[in-house]
């Protein structure tokens, strides 16, 4: 019972790990390039969630200081960092999508295995 409560306390971490594994799995096992990319995004989101969760304090307020009031605030630093992380993730996604479009134009397929096959034939 105790374990369950402790898990409940750390729900965010748990969710982040589950998401991470889902993303990781999708990224490595799916042949479809778009799905790979989706997996990548899920994985990144999981990491972001994890990171932000490290700064969360139960019952804490948004860190906007008000003079004279002594509240408990959540740690703003992880959120600020993850903002940067999201920007990076978005740019990588955009770039990967553009590459996928180019590949689709060249090979006519989004299947990574098929592309590998086509290329192997080309090399011969």
């Amino acid at each position: 019972m105790d374990t369950v409560f402790r898990l409940g306390d750390n729900l965010y971490y748990l969710a982040a790990m589950v998401l991470f594994i889902i993303g990781f799995h999708t990224m490595l096992t799916h042949a479809n390039l778009i799905k790979k990319l989706l997996g990548m995004n899920i994985m990144e989101t999981a990491i972001f969630l994890f990171f932000v969760a490290t700064g969360y304090i139960r019952g804490g307020r948004a860190p906007i200081m008000q003079v004279g009031q002594d509240h408990l605030y959540v740690n703003p630093l992880p959120s600020a960092l993850i903002l940067t992380g999201i920007v990076v993730a978005v740019s990588i996604t955009a770039y990967a999508l553009s590459l996928i479009i180019r590949l689709y134009r060249h090979y006519g397929t989004l299947d990574a295995n098929e592309i590998a096959l086509l290329r192997a034939r080309e090399d011969e």
Binding site: F24, M27, K36, M40, E44, I92, Y95, A96
Partner: peptide, 10 residues
């Protein structure tokens, strides 16, 4: 490049 990008992001 795509292969590199995906693994690199990983």
């Amino acid at each position: 490049a795509l292969k590199y990008l995906i693994l690199s992001t990983l």
